[in-house]
Amino acid sequence: MLKLDNVSKTYKTGDKALHNVCLEVSAGQVVGLIGPSGAGKSTLIRCINRLVEPTQGSITLGSTDLTKLNRRDLRQARRRIGMIFQEYALVERLTVMENVLSGRLGYVPTWRSWFRKFSPEDIALAHSLLDNVGLADHYNKRADALSGGQRQRVGIARALEQNPELLLVDEPTASLDPKTSRQIMRLIRAACQERNLPAIINIHDVMLAQQFSDRIIGLRAGKVVFDGSPEALSDEVLTTIYGDEDWTQLRADATPTQNEATAVLDLAEGV
């Protein structure tokens, strides 16, 4: 489905963000990408849709080599890749509907998008996605009138509006409270399962990563240092990824609050 072969990235400043990364993601697989700050998680995700240009290596989605595309073909390829951002990255002063419909921009000629003339199918899809994420009545509100959790739901709807073949998710819960974080992760997970959609989720919260992914990739200083199932993520592995820390203690601290959060969440899920 998605194949990264020997991908490296060196920034103009000389910082080497990625070292010969090789990995393969199969259809429907949700991959949690963890690692300390500055390990290259964001860079890796952005290399795939070339918001950051990789310096070396090849990235293949289906049968297209993304690194070889010219500008026009790259735009066509980006339509197939949905992306969900840290801090939502909604266009704050546009309505929720415009934000969701902007997922179709790659398919719509410029003059139509200028007059906000989208096809009936696009609009119906946007309404259904907003309904799915629980924001059916908010479509005419301005994005900056929503709460953080609501904004990230719009972000999810925007990515799914593209009908993507692959989902890239960059720190989706970075500025959300624990309860909302879990709701958001659950939504992303459900969306992937429903569509058999592969996803790479770059996330700093190890517990969330373990709970919501099929597979964990650990990145440290631009290199893949762990690739395996969430269960295989032992304290030793965490130490190789993050360095020394008392992981048992941390987990013990995290567990009770997590349970509490889950309990509240299960009640709130229907809302």
């Binding site: 890749i81 992306m83 951002f85 840290q86 266009v91 921009l105 410029t110 998008s113």
Partner: peptide, 14 residues
């Protein structure tokens, strides 16, 4: 805010 620009660009917009 550049992140909003990045988000729209990532959808394949011209």
């Amino acid at each position: 805010d550049e992140s909003q620009v990045e988000a729209v660009r990532a959808t394949g917009a011209s």
